[in-house]
């Protein structure tokens, strides 16, 4: 048996020690992310998502291949960067997840409850929704974020999202803007993007969904907002609720023009 350069590199969730100044730390974190990006396990989720898209399911035993994500039935490429958007058939502004629910109900004959049954994955419990989101988002990699604002309901969603972003409430009198409205804020070592500033918003919105190394799962924008609400001690954000779509629209619009580079990999 001939062995050449045996175990070269096996990446576990190892963080190097940070002793240098804040700026060096930031550079090191960037370097660490780039190292990880090469072997982003999100690919495993994306591969499953592509299969789910084609799989026949539900009482009508149909696939999602005829689902219209905004660019025509079955068009997946570039769909994510043009969401949320207004859909005439449901007369609502929908983000990717709520659109997938609409398609599962209309095409596959599932009930909305069935379609939303497991929005996020957990250890040993993959989520079809999370896999689909990972794959569909990956089909927009490298494209410009461009949510539409031509329909009045799309503009209304943006305005509602903006209100929610700055709305202070809960036991801690928090708003999204408390953490994400100023430059150079952080929670422990995590730098917080200032989402009122285009550059930060583009990097933030353009990197979700993401594989969370600490959780070993791909997390979507719906999950990100759900968890921000939890951290603010707000009432639980309902999956695909109008509020979540409005906030997503606000963030997408803030990030307009940025390059979409997800599913990314994060700590």
């Amino acid at each position: 048996m001939r062995i050449d350069r045996l175990p070269a590199m096996m990446l576990a969730a190892l963080l190097p020690c940070f002793v240098a100044a804040q700026q060096d730390t930031q550079k090191e974190i960037e370097r660490y992310r780039q190292l990880l990006q090469d072997g982003n396990p999100s690919e495993l989720f994306e591969a499953r998502g592509a299969e789910h898209w084609k799989a026949k399911r539900g009482p009508k035993n149909t696939s999602l291949e005829q689902c219209d994500l905004g660019l025509g039935a079955g068009v997946v490429k570039g769909a994510y960067v043009r969401l949320p958007r207004y859909f005439a058939d449901s007369d609502k502004v929908e983000d990717l997840e709520s659109r997938l629910v609409t398609c599962m109900v209309a095409l596959q004959g599932l009930t909305p409850e069935e379609a939303k049954r497991r929005p996020y994955s957990g250890p040993g419990q993959p989520s079809m929704m999370a896999d689909l989101v990972a794959w569909i988002a990956s089909e927009s990699r490298g494209m410009k974020i461009a949510p539409p604002q031509s329909h009045p309901k799309e503009r209304l969603a943006y305005q509602t999202g903006e209100k929610i972003f700055f709305y202070r409430a809960g036991t801690h009198d928090f708003a999204c803007a408390t953490c994400h409205g100023e430059d150079n804020k952080r929670i422990r070592l995590q730098d917080l993007p200032n989402l009122t500033n285009a550059g930060d918003a583009q990097r933030a919105f353009g990197s979700w969904p993401a594989y969370r190394v600490s959780q070993g799962e791909v997390r979507s924008m719906q999950w990100r907002l759900y968890d921000c609400f939890r951290q603010q001690r707000f009432p639980e954000m309902q999956f695909t609720s109008d509020a979540s779509v409005a906030l997503t629209m606000f963030l997408a619009k803030r990030a307009e023009g940025g390059t979409f580079d997800a599913p990314a990999i994060k700590r």
Partner: peptide, 20 residues
């Protein structure tokens, strides 16, 4: 060309990179 024994210290969804 490669034979490895792994244990519980390898992360979930492992990534392996090598040359031969």
């Amino acid at each position: 060309v490669l034979s490895a024994q792994w244990g519980t210290s390898i992360s979930k969804n492992p990534f392996m990179h090598f040359r031969f």
